[in-house]
Design a protein around this nucleic acid. Structure first.
Lengths: 341, 341
DNA sequence: CTGAAAGCGCTTACAG
DNA sequence: CTGAAAGCGCTTACAG
C-alpha cells in the first residue's frame, strides 16, 4: 500500500530520537518547546499517524470495544430497528472518547476468544440471561463489561436496564383508567428474569391493584415480532373472553396485531384499544397513531458506553446498576371503554 | 487483567522454539506430526489465542474493515432502519471470512486517519458523492474500498448500487398502467448523480414513454424522511393540479405522507394512490398495505463485503460495478384511477 | 524437521 | 532536556 511513515522516520527527519518523538506525541516526559514544535511540524507534514497495533502491543489497551448482540438465526443479526437505535447510541458515546466499536453477532456457543485476540478494552453485551454461557465466559475473562436488558442477579455486574415493570404497570393502568377490564397481554416469550417477564409483572400489579383478577387465558406468548403480533390477532378474535383492550409488549408486535385484527374485521380503537411498548419511530404516524410506553433507546446505548468507559478508566462510578425510566405516550389507539362501538 | 499466555509460554511448555509454535499455528513450514500434536494440545490446554496486534505489526493486515456511514447531524448516525439492514448484511458477510467490522459515522470533514492508524484491510463507504472530499482521501490512501449507493463516475472504483432508474420507471409505469396521469413525485433531495436523481430519471422516462408531459409542479423535493413525507401532504393537498397518485422515493416518506394526507382529510387509496420505495419491514402490515419498489438491502451489504474481500485478497474479480435489481410489489395503496371515489 | 535472531512500530524506565 | 536500549508478541528468512 502506501509506504507508511513511522516514528523512526519522524525521528530521523527531525534529528531527534524516537523516544523524544514518542514523548511529544504522548505529551509525556520533558521536552523543550522548540523540539515539540519541530517534531509536531514534521508529523503534520508527513501525515504521520501512530500505529494502533504497535501501541497496543506495549500498552495492552486497544481502544476498541465490542457491542455484542444476539443473532436471530444462525449468523444473521436480528431484524429489529431497536438494535440500530442502540448501536447508534453506542457509536455516539464511544466516538467522543476515542474508542472505536466493533459490531459482533453471537450465538450461544460463542467462545469470546476475540476478546483476548484483539485485547478489547471492553464489551457491551445485550440481552443475555442469567443461565447463559456467555455470561460465564465473559466473567471468567474479567474484561470490563456492561450488560444491557439482561437482568442479571449478581450485584457486581454493570447493567443498564429499562424500568420494564413500571412500563407494564403504566400501560395497564392507562387501559384500566379508560374503563377496560378484560385486557389481554401480548407478551412475547415469557422467560423468567427477561424483559417481557418484568413487563408482565407490572401488568399483574396494575390489575391486582384495581381488583381485577388476572386470567391466564388473556396472556398470549406469541413471538414478539410483527408476524407474531399478526398471528396473535387470530387468538384474540376467537377468544371466549370479551377482550376490549390489548397491551402488546413491543411496538412491532402491536403493529402486526393491528393489521391482523383488521384482516378479521376488527378495528382499532373502535373495537379494541391497543397499546404498544418502545415508541419506535413510526408509532406517531400510524393510522391510528399508537399509544405506547416510551423508552429512550439511544440514551440507553450512550449510558452503557459511558459506564463501560468509566470502568475501563477506573473512574470511580458508584452505580453499577442504571435503570432507564419509561413514560406513557397517549395517542389514538386507545379510547375509553364507554366509547367502544 | 488476566495474565495472557503468549507464544513464548507455549514454546517453553512444549519444549520447542517459538518459531515452531508459530509454524503449527499458521500451518506453515515443515513440522513433524508429533510436534504438531504436542503443540496443539498445549495451545488448547492453555487456551492460547494469538495476539492480533503482534500479528498485525508484522503482517500489515488487521483483519478489520470499517463500514462508514454518514451522520445525520453532528455525531449521530442516521435514524433510518435502512442502515441497520445494510450493516447486518456486512456483519454477516464479514463473519464468514474471519474479519471483523468497525462501525463508524462520518461527516464531510472526516480525515480517515483511522485507516492508517488501525491498518484497516478495507472500507465500505455508503452514500458519498462524486464531489465529496471523502472520496478524494480514500483514493489517496489507496486502501481497498467499496462504495455503496454512491454513483461515482470513475470506472476503477468498486461500487454497489441499486437499479434506481429502473425502480423509478417501474413504479411510475405501474401508476400509469392503473390509469393515473397526474402523478406527483416525492423525491427527497435531488442531487445530480444521487440515488433520488436516478429514481427521478426513471420517473421521467416512464412519463415520456407514455406521452405524459412532466410538470415541475408535481415534483416535491421535501426531505426524504417520515417528517418530510408528512409535510409534503400539505403541498399535495393544496396543489392546483388534480394529483391522483404520488410516487414517494422512500417508504418512510410514503408513511409520513399517508398520515399527512389523512390529517387533511384525504384517504389512501380512495382519494390518492401512493407507492413507496425500499420495501422496509413494515410495508405489508400497514393499513392500507404499501405498494412499493422492493430492494434487497441485506444482500446489498453482503455483496459489498464480498467484493471488498475479493479486492483485499487479490482475487481476480472482473466486475467492479454491481447493480442490485429492483422489483415491483403491488399492495393496497394503489388502485385504478377509475375506482377512485 | 527445528531453532536463533532480526524486526514490525511503538513505549518506558534509565542514564546522562 | 534527550537518547540508547529493552521489550511487547508475533513472523520470517536463514542456518543447520
Amino acid at each position: 500500500m502506501n509506504n507508511k511513515v513511522s516514528i523512526k522516520d519522524i525521528a530521523r527527519i527531525a534529528n531527534v530520537s524516537v523516544a523524544t518523538v514518542s514523548n511529544v506525541i504522548n505529551q509525556t516526559g520533558r521536552v523543550s518547546a522548540n523540539t515539540i514544535n519541530k517534531v509536531n511540524k514534521i508529523i503534520q507534514e508527513q501525515q504521520f499517524v501512530p500505529s494502533a497495533s504497535a501501541r497496543n502491543l506495549k500498552n495492552k489497551n486497544s481502544h476498541l470495544i465490542a457491542v455484542v448482540v444476539p443473532f436471530l438465526e444462525k449468523g444473521i443479526l436480528q431484524d429489529n430497528p431497536f438494535y440500530w437505535e442502540l448501536v447508534r447510541g453506542v457509536e455516539n458515546g464511544a466516538r467522543n472518547h476515542e474508542v472505536q466499536v466493533i459490531l459482533l453477532g453471537t450465538n450461544e456457543d460463542e467462545d469470546f476468544s476475540f476478546v483476548k485476540q484483539r485485547d478489547l478494552d471492553g464489551l457491551i453485551v445485550v440481552g443475555t440471561f442469567g443461565h447463559s454461557s456467555a455470561l460465564q465466559k465473559v466473567m471468567e475473562m474479567g474484561v470490563p463489561c456492561v450488560f444491557l436488558d439482561s437482568y442479571l442477579s449478581s450485584p457486581d455486574l454493570y447493567q443498564v436496564n429499562l424500568d420494564d415493570e413500571a412500563g407494564g404497570y403504566l400501560g395497564t393502568k392507562h387501559l384500566i383508567g379508560l374503563g377496560h377490564k378484560t385486557i389481554a397481554a401480548l407478551t412475547g416469550k415469557l422467560e423468567e428474569g427477561g424483559v417481557n417477564y418484568f413487563r408482565y409483572q407490572g401488568y399483574l400489579r396494575a390489575l391486582q391493584e384495581c381488583g381485577i383478577s388476572s386470567d391466564p387465558e388473556l396472556v398470549i406468548e406469541e413471538f414478539s415480532s410483527i408476524q407474531g403480533g399478526y398471528q396473535a390477532a387470530q387468538k384474540i378474535g376467537s377468544s371466549k373472553s370479551r377482550i376490549s383492550a390489548v397491551f402488546a409488549f413491543s411496538d412491532v408486535s402491536a403493529m402486526g396485531l393491528i393489521r391482523g385484527l383488521h384482516d378479521i374485521g376488527l378495528s382499532v380503537p373502535t373495537d379494541l384499544s391497543v397499546i404498544g411498548f418502545d415508541d419506535i419511530f413510526y408509532t406517531q404516524f400510524m393510522i391510528p397513531s399508537l399509544t405506547t410506553i416510551r423508552q429512550d433507546v439511544l440514551s440507553k446505548g450512550q449510558t452503557a458506553v459511558n459506564m463501560l468507559l468509566d470502568q475501563i478508566n477506573g473512574t470511580v462510578s458508584s452505580t453499577r446498576n442504571v435503570t432507564i425510566p419509561v413514560s406513557l405516550t397517549v395517542r389514538q389507539s386507545t379510547i375509553p371503554y364507554s366509547k367502544k362501538v
